[in-house]
Design a protein around this nucleic acid. Structure first.
Lengths: 149, 149
DNA sequence: CTTCGTATGTCAAAGTCCTGACATCGAGCA
DNA sequence: TGCTCGATGTCAGGACTTTGACATACGAAG
């Protein structure tokens, strides 16, 4: 077996530490959002809508890295709780642009604060420059994998 | 609302790009392992056992970031396919040390090659130093979140 | 020695998510 | 105009994972 074809020790494998960090982040966010009765996908949906109102179900699904079907049930739950609103009929094509309600904006504000606290805890000890480099590198990694070429 | 309590634009949020990269990696690994009839947790289990033989179910679950129950069904599936072997009774306590079979080692070799290719593609354009920094930073982030203090 | 606490493996149930599929709608083109 | 093609929203089905719970086994403290 040639040396170059192996993954190598776990502690030095980019994929492994990436998964480790993502798993830890997921767990911490889950714990932080539990008091608000929000799951991570639900929060992602609210955050997306807060920054870019009028997104369709498919857009939200892509932004939250889930399938359209999963996002659909998330939206139905949020709509039942009065946090988001969707028009009964589509103004263009089949897209149903979703908007935050006042209650949704209020809930998002609390949730955003909780998630921000988690992110601060995660980045403790990291300089602003280190964070910027991290974001740039991760973005590059994601782009490399999603390129269709 | 104070500015410091918000998450900020998605493209610059560490948590968001981390999730994005992890999602892309998961998808790419899934596609790479599908020809071998292996899921990502199954591969993780094999890789763990290849590097540290004799790990128990609970150890494997922690290493693969899943619950003991999930890892248990993974192990049962791998055992049914003859890729791993577990003793009928526990030599110490209740831990059942798992070992790779010859078939398992062979399968792992192919899978490791496929995953390594994905990792290379992901890190295209990144220098060795950049990768080292990335691993160190992500490890630090994970440690910050899992600390109980 | 006894007792408590922690860790492990396993079972059952629930929830979550994805895969596959279908009908609908707009855009581009002959 | 009539057509195909891609994208969207939605419905069932199944696979996977987690939560909750229980019995067991070792180690430390009394």
């Amino acid at each position: 077996m040639r040396q170059g074809d192996q993954v190598g020790p776990l502690d030095t494998a980019v994929g492994y530490v990436l998964k480790q960090a993502a798993s830890a982040l997921r767990g911490a966010m889950d714990a932080a959002l539990r008091p608000l009765d929000l799951t991570v996908p639900q929060y992602s949906c609210l955050e997306l809508l807060g920054q870019r109102p009028g997104l369709s179900n498919a857009d939200l699904a892509r932004g939250a890295f889930v399938t359209r079907q999963s996002m659909n049930v998330v939206l139905q739950g949020l709509e039942a709780r009065g946090l988001v609103s969707r028009p009964a009929s589509a103004p263009h094509g089949r897209q149903l642009p979703t908007e935050l309600t006042d209650a949704g904006r209020s809930q998002l504000q609390e949730a955003s604060r909780a998630v921000h606290a988690v992110q601060v805890r995660m980045c403790a000890g990291l300089s602003a420059e280190q964070q910027r480099v991290l974001v740039a590198t991760l973005t590059e990694c994601a782009r490399n994998l999603t390129e269709t070429t």
